[in-house]
Design a protein around this nucleic acid. Structure first.
Length: 563
RNA sequence: CGGGGCGUGGCGCAGUCCGGCUAGCGCGCUUGGUUUGGGACCAAGAGGCCGGGGGUUCGAAUCCCCCCGCCCCGACCA
């Protein structure tokens, strides 16, 4: 591509609306332009990178036996009603006004519909079906450029299997393929255990990149052997345990004490002996959750423990139900509530909790003796500095960007849509599904996040829009222009993709700045002085290293660098 | 949806509090000339219903009301 003819609108100044480096650089390098909030036009350079990433994904999916589909973005609402996901997605699902259609945010339903109609025997499986296609999600708040958009390109794949054991195989194939994909794209990433969220299913893992721009919070052990989304992460924290004495429950006056810390100070006890009450709705049932001291309740874990949906109880409703404020609620004598407790509190005694009467607490509580607890679950949010659950040192808590997510769905969708097959005994059984997604834009943006400096991007050769950025430093010299023109042809003949800055009347400084901004792995610089000595300069963008090679050996040198 | 910020030539911004004359500046763009290895210089130009609608006023980019859009924090997020 000759830069004089191409459409690569670079900009010198950092766009005001872009905050994170990848967003700023994608605009500055002429890869994208925003059309609306969360909606981006991809310009030729951006599109080339996207296609390179898509091709790597395609190759690795094909390598595990995947078959590529092209499913429609338009999808009948009825199909989504059958699986209950019109409600599950809520406002995130785009609805059409003049037809009973939705814009598909993912394709489990459509895959399941196909499978229902065409997979009838265990002999038809396993299947891995995938596509690389535009998804639509009405995100309440798009942000960070293409990292969270309302329209985005996604590789989504679906496995169809006869059993949970067979699903494990398909799932593992995907896990391996994903590692290859992200490695080939030159990303530093890690894999974490994750929550299945509204996708449902029995297990999932996320492929993450550490980044302050990330929206997920990840707990990692020091040695890297443990990594989990905080939604599911656990740690080794000691149980609260028992105290020696077994005094009867006693009411104590605790005027104007609001927080756990204040209460611990007021009573001069260890904060973990304070059983903090957190009040929720579990569906439409009131729910009391006991946590040790300042432990933070993890809503994802609570949701996983009870199913349905959960939300904090409003202060007025709590007062109406109990006659007390949130700070004075406790498990004893509380009627009509389901009472759950964190595992740390199992078997504990000598606890202090609210008396369900403002400004009073109860002391010497033995949970087993004095209350009826409906269940003990791991409900706490891990904190940095705690011991990782299986050794490996202390936990670090970092932010991460989700690049990919793999799910063992099980039979959730095949049950809902009655997608069954006949097994080898002639019995009807639901197809066992898995679903797997990779955000293509996110790979591109994350690559830039990890590979840039103050001047611009440096692309890995595997996904660079071009392999070589050829610069004719000046158009004034006939030798320079003729040599650069010749090299342009020769490099292309050698199978390389070349971006050729052949612009006239553009100063050398501008050309160099643009080359650094656009970030091709190697720059071939044809200048007057070096050429007088028969030399051409090769600059490695990432390191800034420059070498002079003979004109005659230039193509071979560049080819070997890119081999 | 809650909180905050913003909307002025293609881009980045000033002007808005405290209404006033022809709406400025930098970058980019066009033309001519000079320059030529790290975002050159000089000169002359083109380009604006100041986000939209309504109101107040002799007069509105500026004040008031409504609406729309964009960004950030939070809630949400397969």
């Amino acid at each position: 591509m000759r830069l004089s003819k191409g459409f690569i609108p670079t900009v010198k100044e950092t766009p005001a609306d872009a905050v994170i480096p990848s967003h700023q650089l994608m605009i500055r390098a002429g890869m994208i332009r925003a059309l609306a909030a969360g909606v981006y036009t991809f310009l030729p350079l951006g599109h080339r990178v996207m296609m390179k990433v898509a091709q790597i994904v395609r190759e690795e999916m094909d390598a595990i036996g995947g078959q590529e589909f092209h499913l429609p973005a338009l999808s009948p609402v009825e199909l989504w009603q059958e699986t209950g996901r019109v409600e599950a997605f809520g406002d995130t699902l785009f609805h059409l006004k003049n037809r009973p259609l939705v814009l598909a945010p993912t394709h489990e339903e459509v895959i399941c519909w196909l499978a229902k109609n065409h997979i009838s025997s265990y002999k038809d499986m396993p299947q891995i079906w995938y596509q690389i296609q535009t998804k639509f999600r009405n995100e309440p708040r798009p942000r960070s450029g293409v990292l969270r958009g309302r329209q985005f390109l996604m590789k989504d794949s679906y496995s169809l299997d006869r059993s949970m054991e067979a699903l494990d195989v398909s799932y593992d194939l995907h896990a391996k393929a994903y590692r290859k994909i992200f490695a080939r794209c030159g990303l530093r990433f890690f894999v974490v255990g994750a929550s299945s969220g509204t996708m449902g299913g029995t297990g999932s893992q996320e492929f993450m990149m550490e980044s302050d721009a990330g929206e997920d919070v990840i707990a990692l052990s020091e040695d890297g052997t443990y990594a989990a989304n905080v939604e599911v992460a656990t740690s080794r924290v000691p149980a609260v345990g028992r105290v020696a004495h077994t005094k009867p429950v006693e009411e104590i006056h605790t005027p104007s004490v609001r927080t756990i810390d204040e209460l611990a100070q007021f009573l001069k006890v260890d904060e973990q002996r304070l059983a903090k009450s957190v009040v929720y709705w579990g569906g439409d049932k009131p729910l009391l959750v006991l946590m040790a001291g300042n432990d933070e309740l993890n809503e994802s874990k609570l949701l996983a423990a009870i199913g349905g949906n959960v939300r904090p109880m409003e202060a007025e409703r709590l007062m109406a139900l109990t006659g007390a404020d949130g700070g004075s609620i406790g498990p004893i004598g509380l009627r009509g509530f389901t009472i759950l407790a964190d595992k740390r509190l199992e078997g504990a005694n000598g606890l202090i909790s609210g008396a369900n009467r403002n400004d009073y607490h109860l002391a010497n509580i033995d949970l087993a003796r004095d209350c009826s607890i409906d269940g003990y679950h791991d409900l706490r949010t891990v904190q940095a500095g705690e011991d990782a659950p299986y050794g490996g040192g202390k936990l670090r808590v970092v932010k991460g960007i989700e690049l990919g997510h793999i799910f063992k769905l099980g039979t959730k969708y095949s049950d809902a849509l009655r997608a069954n097959f006949l097994d080898e005994n002639g019995r009807e059984a639901p197809i066992v599904m898995g679903s797997y997604g990779i955000g293509i834009e996110r790979i591109v943006a994350c690559h830039i996040e990890q590979n840039h400096d103050a001047n611009g991007i440096f692309w890995d050769k595997t996904i660079a829009p071009f392999h070589v950025h050829l610069v004719a430093v000046t158009a004034r010299s006939k030798e320079v222009v003729e040599t650069a023109d010749a090299l342009y042809r020769e490099l292309q003949s050698a199978g390389l993709e070349v971006l050729y800055d052949d612009r006239v009347e553009i100063s050398p400084g501008v050309k160099f700045k643009d080359a650094d901004l656009l970030g091709m792995p190697y720059q071939v610089i044809v200048g007057e002085k070096n050429l007088a000595n028969g030399k051409i300069e090769i600059k490695t963008r990432k390191t800034g290293e420059r070498t002079l090679v003979d004109r005659t050996g230039l193509v071979a040198s560049v080819s070997s660098l890119l081999a």
